[in-house]
Structures are given as C-alpha cells and as structure tokens.
Simulated scan of single mutants.
Amino acid sequence: MQLVMDRISKRVGAQTWLYDMDMALHSGAVTVLLGATQAGKTSLMRIMAGLDAPTEGRVRVDGVDVTGMPVRERNVAMVYQQFINYPSMTVADNIASPLKLRGEKNVQERVRALAERLHIDMFLARHPAELSGGQQQRVALARALAKGAPLMLLDEPLVNLDYKLREELRDELTQLFAAGDSTVVYATTEPGEALLLGGYTAVLHEGELLQYGPTAEVFHTPSSLRVARAFSDPPMNLLPAEAVEQGVRVASRELLALPQPLPAGAAGGLTVGVRASALRLVSRPGDVAVPGKVELAEIAGSDTFVHAETPWGGMVAQFTGVHDFALGAAITLHLQPGDVYVFGADGALLRAPARRGGR
C-alpha cells in the first residue's frame, strides 16, 4: 500500500493538533512515528486509518483520494495502547477471527504460530478477562498481525509490557514486519525502539513534523536541535559555544578544532551537541580531555550512565559494561572534536560527525 498525506492539518476548535505536513509512506516498510506524549502521533494515525478526517489536505491510497472514507471501508489493522479484544471469545478465537473471515486454511496452525511468537500460546483456551493487561495487549497484537492488512497501525503496542518482554517482542516484531507485505506505522516515545525497528522515522513535536527519512539518517543527521533532543536516549549533551577560526569554543573555555570549517557566516550563539556514547574514559590520540566530578552513576542493562559536573556544564556519559563510580569522585571524559554536532543560533544543524562503517 502506498499511503500519501498531502498537506494535511488537523484543528479542533481553537487548538491545532497537527500542523500542515506532507508524508509519503514507503510501501511494505516500517515507518516509526517518534515523539513525546502529545506530539501528534495518535492524531496522525487516526487520519491514516480513516477514524478522523483532516481539517485540510488530502489522504491518498495507491493514488486514490480516500479523504473522509470511513475506517470500515478501508482494509486497516490498528492496535492501540488501550487493547481491544472480544470478551466472549477465547484467545484462540480472537486471533483466528480475521483468518476465518478471509476463509484461510490451516487456521489453527497460524494461530498457534503467532501465539508462540508473542508468548501467549499457553493462554489460547482462556478468555481475555482471565489475562493480565500485558497479555491482553499481545492478544490484540496477534489478531492485528493475523489480519494481514496492507496497512497496519500500532500505537505504542508494547507500552504495557514489562521491560524484559518488551525487549523480546521488539525483536520478534522486527522479524514479523520484515517477513510480511504490510506497510507498518509504529508510534513510540522511545528512540531506542525506533533504531531497533529501522525502516523510516518521522520525528513529531507538538503537532509538527520535524524530520522524516531513513531511520539511521535521521538519527545520525538530525536536521535541528529539536530533532536531536527527540531522537537521543540518553539526551544529547547540549553546550553553549561560539565559532572561532579554528573551530568552536565551548562554554567560553575549550577550543574544539573541527576537521572541516563551519559554513560561512556561522556565528552568534551556537550549540555543540555531544552524544553520551561519544564520551570515553580512555584517551585516544587527538582527544580533548574534560575534567569533572561524578554526581550520579546508574547501571541500566549492560551500560553505565554517569552524570558529571564539568567546566562545560552538566554532562552525561554512557559507558559499555558495568562500572563502579563513587559519588563526588573525580572523572575525566575524553572526546574526539570530530564527534560533535554543531547547531546554529536558529537551531539548524551546521555539522554532524562523519558516519563510520556505513552505520
């Protein structure tokens, strides 16, 4: 399915929920809608599904104008944060319902295969009321996958699950999406989820479409400060800077000699961005050393996150592995000048680090 939104917007009373935007989804691929709560993700998905009509603009499917066409006349599967199942049916019958409507063969085998991948095969004989919220959400997700609709809309479908299961199902969903023919739209607040799913990412903020493109490209080359803030976990370190002949000076202190000069005319209040993963404990040739003091150390999974107070301001560093840092201890962070982002006074990206190894 080729879904195109042509200059759509959405207003409700005096409020603008979606500002004027264009978006053409890539057929058979995953598009992630990334943004904080109230960024406009659900409003946009409802227009895609036909649950709402845009105030202005047109929605086209395979070149046909479907603006205002109700959802019951479209072949769409949608899963919300608030799961919806048929309470009188067993889990098996819930998942099988779209398969039976299509007259599919081997329904039981298909149901069991989907249930196993979503870790609910042991609940097939139960009714939804006998399941936890996370289990019911997986039933709704399995039924949507069974429908095999050309357009599948998933509005934060894993948000009600525990951390470990969420990680497992992300991997499963990535494989399921790759094996299917559906155009998938997946809404999330988590940058890591967008990176895992790949495909394309649209970054939304308070109803505005900030950037849309291949996920890796948007992550490595955020077009603005707002995109960099939205697509970074932990948040990108953002530091005041000024342009000098050799590069940029950070916080009126340290000179970062950039590999290439900034665009002509770059001046005024610049911002240097440093991803937490670009900071290291061990120095390499050409590094700049940033002394600091540990304010907080957190272990999350197999990574350690250190919050440090430095002459440049507060910074967060991400180190692979489990490390022990005492509060108040001295720490020296090391950084390659070429690994920084530079944003102009208007927030637009002026330079991004060179990507290594095609990543």
Rank of each mutant, 00 (worst) to 15 (best):
residue 138 R to F: 04
residue 240 P to R: 11
residue 155 D to P: 05
residue 167 E to I: 11
residue 188 T to C: 08
residue 166 R to F: 06
residue 241 A to K: 02
residue 185 V to E: 01
residue 141 L to H: 01
residue 180 G to H: 12
residue 228 A to T: 08
residue 160 N to D: 12
residue 238 L to E: 08
residue 172 E to Q: 14
residue 202 A to D: 05
residue 214 P to Y: 11
residue 220 H to P: 08
residue 225 L to Q: 04
residue 138 R to P: 01
residue 209 L to Q: 00
residue 138 R to L: 04
residue 171 D to N: 13
residue 177 F to V: 13
residue 183 T to V: 11
residue 135 Q to Y: 00
residue 173 L to R: 01
residue 168 E to A: 15
residue 218 V to E: 04
residue 165 L to F: 05
residue 234 P to K: 02
residue 162 D to V: 09
residue 162 D to I: 09
residue 168 E to S: 14
residue 163 Y to S: 14
residue 168 E to V: 11
residue 176 L to F: 01
residue 161 L to K: 03
residue 138 R to M: 02
residue 187 A to H: 04
residue 175 Q to E: 13
residue 176 L to I: 13
residue 178 A to G: 05
residue 188 T to E: 07
residue 148 G to T: 05
residue 171 D to R: 11
residue 214 P to I: 15
residue 193 E to G: 09
residue 229 R to V: 10
residue 192 G to D: 12
residue 198 G to P: 01
residue 215 T to N: 09
residue 156 E to Q: 10
residue 228 A to Y: 01
residue 197 L to F: 07
residue 157 P to K: 06
residue 147 K to W: 07
residue 149 A to L: 05
residue 162 D to N: 14
residue 159 V to F: 01
residue 184 V to A: 00
residue 217 E to F: 12
residue 230 A to I: 08
residue 216 A to N: 13
residue 238 L to K: 12
residue 134 G to I: 02
residue 185 V to I: 15
residue 144 A to P: 00
residue 195 L to E: 14
residue 240 P to T: 08
residue 161 L to W: 03
residue 241 A to H: 02
residue 204 L to N: 08
residue 227 V to R: 06
residue 235 P to W: 02
residue 171 D to S: 15
residue 193 E to I: 06
residue 202 A to W: 05
residue 199 G to W: 04
residue 233 D to I: 02
residue 140 A to C: 09
residue 192 G to R: 11
residue 204 L to D: 10
residue 160 N to M: 10
residue 146 A to Y: 02
residue 177 F to R: 08
residue 143 R to Q: 06
residue 170 R to G: 13
residue 208 E to L: 12
residue 169 L to T: 07
residue 226 R to Y: 03
residue 219 F to C: 13
residue 184 V to R: 03
residue 196 L to Q: 15
residue 227 V to T: 12
residue 152 M to W: 05
residue 205 H to V: 15
residue 239 L to A: 02
residue 187 A to C: 13
residue 209 L to I: 11
residue 184 V to H: 00
residue 151 L to S: 08
residue 173 L to M: 14
residue 149 A to W: 02
residue 140 A to S: 11
residue 177 F to T: 12
residue 146 A to M: 00
residue 169 L to I: 14
residue 182 S to D: 09
residue 206 E to L: 14
residue 167 E to T: 08
residue 145 L to C: 04
residue 171 D to W: 10
residue 236 M to G: 06
residue 235 P to L: 11
residue 144 A to K: 04
residue 211 Q to E: 07
residue 208 E to Y: 14
residue 135 Q to S: 02
residue 226 R to G: 07
residue 235 P to K: 10
residue 156 E to M: 07
residue 237 N to V: 03
residue 215 T to A: 10
residue 152 M to I: 04
residue 232 S to G: 10
residue 149 A to K: 02
residue 233 D to R: 07
